[in-house]
Amino acid sequence: MAPSSTSHFDQIRQEYDDQALMYNSLLKLPFGKLENQLFASAIRSDDCCRGASVLDLGGGTGLRARQVLEAGAAQVDIVDFSPEMMAVGKRDAEKILGEEARKRLRWFLGDVSKPLFGEGGVVGLRDSYDVVMANWIFDHVGSVEVLEAMWHNISAAVRPGGRFVGVRACDPRTKAMTTGKYGPSCQDFVEFTDGLSYNSTIPVEYGPPVKLENLSLKISYSGSTEMHDKYGFSDVVIEPYENAEVVQADPEFWKLWLEQPGFAIVKALKK
């Protein structure tokens, strides 16, 4: 049986708050470099971000938000439930972005597993967006009901003809994720009716590793498009790993990953 959603979200919020300053260490690891390059490829392949309004659900420190700004987005709204992750993101934006780009970023404290729109939602969000991102949020979900609540928010936010882009875990029990070859590692697997609970560890160059508790439902990590179909999305595709420069430069190093990858970047079109 999976932990209750409330207790798990409280725990994961505390973990992100406590480890916010170290989280971006992921970018220095092969895993982080791959994610960064693949995401850049995904948002630039059809120029979907140029002039777009973008909603970044679970946007954390704003890594992906800055990427879509670089790809030409007109405005990016970030929603996250960790005040410390957003504080790091705001400081990074102050250092990295120019004044004009910073004005195109807005930060909102909110829980993406709860209704974001309408009465009781997050005040200040737009009625709809051209692009909605949801990166890693499905990997802290222990029930289909919570997963559907997230997909309801995504569907409500994307305008007809708009885009969804999201990063999700694949099966975390693959050798690519248990051996730590690419940086992060997963361990302590416990199966429950609809999925897996497990821990993940991100090594940090200086200091203790970042440790997170995860819940992943089979409907997500298996690659099923059931939720996409149910909530009005079509043309579901996975960004090819071979589009990343690190994979092109050293395919032998990435052979284990290509056989059984650790994450997927998924794109879809709102009907």
Rank of each mutant, 00 (worst) to 15 (best):
M1C: 08
F9K: 13
I12D: 09
R13Q: 14
A20T: 09
M22H: 15
L27M: 13
L29F: 10
F31K: 09
K33C: 10
I43V: 13
D46S: 15
C48V: 14
A52C: 10
D56S: 03
G62L: 02
Q67D: 06
V68M: 03
V68Y: 00
E70C: 07
Q75M: 12
V76Y: 00
I78V: 14
V79C: 03
S82M: 05
P83D: 11
P83R: 09
M86I: 05
A87S: 15
I96A: 07
G98T: 03
L109M: 13
L109I: 11
L116N: 05
G121N: 09
D127N: 13
D127A: 14
V132E: 00
W136D: 03
D139A: 11
H140Y: 13
S143A: 08
W151H: 13
W151D: 06
H152F: 12
I154K: 00
S155M: 07
S155C: 07
F164V: 02
F164T: 02
V165K: 00
R168V: 14
R168W: 06
C170K: 13
T174W: 07
A176H: 02
T179E: 14
G180T: 02
K181W: 10
Y182W: 05
P184I: 03
C186L: 05
F189I: 08
E191Q: 13
Y198L: 11
Y198E: 04
N199L: 12
T201M: 12
I202Y: 11
V204E: 01
P208A: 15
L217F: 09
K218G: 13
I219H: 08
S224M: 11
S224C: 07
T225D: 15
F233P: 01
P240V: 06
P251Y: 07
F253A: 11
K255Q: 13
L256P: 00
P261A: 04
A264H: 07
L269P: 02
K270I: 01
